Amino acid sequence: MITTLPKVELHLHIEGTLEPELIMELAERNGIRLPYTDLADLRRQYEFTDLQSFLNLYYANLDVLVTEQDFTDLTLAYLRRAQAAGVRHAEIFMDPQAHTSRGIALATCVNGVSKGLAQGESEFGISTSLIVAFIRDRPAAEALEVLTELIALKAPIVGIGLDSAEVGHPPIDFVEVFALAREHGLKCVAHAGEEGPPEYVWQALQLLKVSRIDHGIRSLEDDALVDYLVENKIPLTVCPFSNVRLRVVDRLEDHPLPSMLERGLLVTINSDDPAYFGGYLDDNFRGLQQTFGLDAPAMAALSRNAVQAAFLTDAQRAPLLEDISSWLEAQV
């Protein structure tokens, strides 16, 4: 039932879909010696105590991505799995600085992912768009340089985001970067309120002028912020499995999703970095269903939220909403 529900994914880092098997395959292809004895040893590294311990492994594994074809293969692997999960549209993050900082040309990663997205749309029937996310614990001046180069390259992106280690790296540091993006008609989103305080959500909204908040679960700590988010219908791209694996919440049973829905927040469900967090989008839906007893109307509502929050035209939204309604009718 869950896999047949038409879904939209809005918070997905393409680098976070790098499965251990593909890591080993690309390492062999590119002649890279990994610090793991075998696949089982690599899998044992996937126990995290917090966001930083996850990021350390995440960035180390990216060394296997070298050529344009590597990025294309990574993207196609995600889209193949997303199709099985029932994903119909995906707005995908890529972290260019994670690659340029290790000597990979910006055009190599952008073109590789873009080719995978184009091929995947025809092969898997998933519409997509690309959002470049800037790493907040690297200098804002570097992000500005990368964005300027992306604009000069006429890179096929729809927007920019802000991600990585949140604590101590407030959105205010990136005001100039986001202003430049808006000048060039790019959509703006930002990670805020995951490990960082509600103040970071306010900054993302008021200073970066984002139209979506990625994560945002700590918004519940500020009633005025919740009221603002509800009144302005600001979407939150929530990632339940990610929150548990990174110890933002101890157990899925402790996740604030029910409270967020009760307060009227526009919540969407996403998988974030599924190769690391134990589940793709269908797995997250299934986990929520089993934990909170979500019925078919509740899951359909979450899926509709994502359609409404996506950077799509009304004409593009209409068939997705119709398909969700058809799915729901078939469940009763």
Rank of each mutant, 00 (worst) to 15 (best):
A152R: 15
A275D: 09
P6M: 01
M1Y: 08
M24T: 00
D163I: 07
F93W: 06
I92W: 01
K154I: 07
T268P: 00
N30P: 07
P171T: 11
D38R: 02
R286M: 15
E15Y: 05
D283T: 13
I213S: 02
G264E: 13
K187F: 11
Y78P: 00
Y276L: 10
G31F: 01
S211M: 15
R44G: 14
C239Q: 12
I126W: 00
F311K: 10
T17M: 08
I157E: 03
N111T: 15
L236T: 01
D272Y: 00
N56A: 12
R263A: 14
G168M: 09
T3G: 02
Y58P: 00
L302I: 05
M94N: 14
P197M: 11
E253P: 02
H184K: 12
V210C: 08
L39Q: 06
Q206T: 15
Y280E: 12
F124H: 01
D38E: 08
D283K: 15
L117V: 13
A107V: 11
E221A: 15
V238C: 04
I23G: 00
A330Q: 12
E253A: 13
E47F: 07
R138N: 15
V248W: 05
E123M: 14
P170H: 07
A143C: 09
V167N: 12
L62V: 02
V167K: 13
R304W: 09
A309P: 04
H215Y: 06
G16C: 08
V238D: 05
L236N: 00
H215K: 07
L147A: 08
V244H: 07
L312H: 04
W327Q: 04
S211I: 10
Q289S: 10
C109A: 10
H255T: 06
A84R: 14
A310C: 13
E68S: 13
I217L: 15
A179R: 14
A315E: 13
A330P: 04
D223H: 15
V230H: 13
L74Q: 10
A143L: 08
Q83W: 08
V226E: 12
R81M: 14
K154D: 15
A82P: 02
R304I: 10
Q308Y: 15
T4G: 03
G287D: 09
K115W: 09
Q206F: 10
L26C: 08
L265C: 10
V113A: 06
V132C: 14
A179C: 02
K209V: 09
P256R: 00
P156N: 05
F93I: 09
